Amino acid sequence: MFVINDMPRQLDVELIQMLSAVETATVGHVRHGGFVDRGIRAVLDERRVAGTAVTLRIPGPDSALLHYVVPHLREGDFLIVDRCGDTRHACWGGVLANVARAKKLAGVVVDGPATDFGEIRKCGVPVWCRGPSPITTKVLGLEGAFNVPISVGGVVVVPGDAVLGDESGVLVLSPPEAMRVGQQAIGLQDAEIVMLKRLADGERLPDITGATELIESRLRQQA
């Protein structure tokens, strides 16, 4: 059975620009949920992008629906692919990387392997996946679903969610969360600049973070 739903509303440009300045690891200082499994890793290092989640679910050996929906993808979309637990067949490779570049996708997340890493890097569209595989999917027409809630890397992704990806991982947020989390993260990153200046001026890290006071207090209690 195939399910094909309408495209989600794209996120505001201002929100995307703000998220693009946020490091996923900064959010990881204050939040635990929304991060996809760390086994899903960046093929391109040192790239940080944000975009609107467009979701796809396709079974192990079949990528017919992926080929079918590619023309519907828009500039700034972040394609998120649920592979139904398959870790053998690569649904993403060089040809699709070239298509993604032409469509100006923000990025692609595949909860499974990909192939043609050299071509993916050459095209420059950021891809996150579970590593390489030489065994590819085929156009079989078995089943699939487009723009439905999916599960990728242990995280539920809903069409229209905000997606942020960099070399440390991938974070998925609802649009209302994304604004709040993004603003908080920018504040933390600004505070880190101040901390680095204090360290350069000779202050000690545990004195700045409060670790000195905390540990010495615990030691006094133990005495």
Rank of each mutant, 00 (worst) to 15 (best):
A106E: 08
P176T: 11
L105A: 10
G144W: 02
N98S: 13
G144E: 02
G124A: 10
K104V: 06
E203V: 03
V194E: 15
T209Q: 12
I16H: 08
A106T: 09
V70A: 13
G182E: 00
G202T: 03
E203K: 13
V170N: 07
V156I: 14
R101M: 10
A162T: 06
G160C: 01
E23Y: 08
C129W: 09
H89D: 05
D111G: 09
F146A: 07
T26W: 02
L142I: 15
R31Q: 04
W92Q: 00
D201I: 00
G144L: 06
V157A: 06
V22I: 09
V172Q: 03
H89I: 02
L196Q: 12
V27A: 06
I150V: 14
A90V: 05
G141P: 08
A106K: 11
F117T: 11
S151G: 10
L105H: 08
K138Q: 15
A223N: 09
V13K: 15
V36F: 03
P113M: 13
G202C: 06
S168T: 11
L164W: 04
V36P: 05
N98H: 10
A97M: 07
C84H: 01
F78P: 01
E216Y: 04
V69W: 02
N147S: 04
T115K: 02
A145N: 04
M18S: 05
G210E: 07
L66V: 05
F146H: 05
S133N: 06
T136I: 13
Q222S: 08
A200Y: 04
A211I: 14
G160S: 03
H32D: 12
L96G: 00
S151R: 15
A100F: 08
V156A: 14
T26Y: 02
V158E: 14
E213I: 05
M18W: 01
D201F: 01
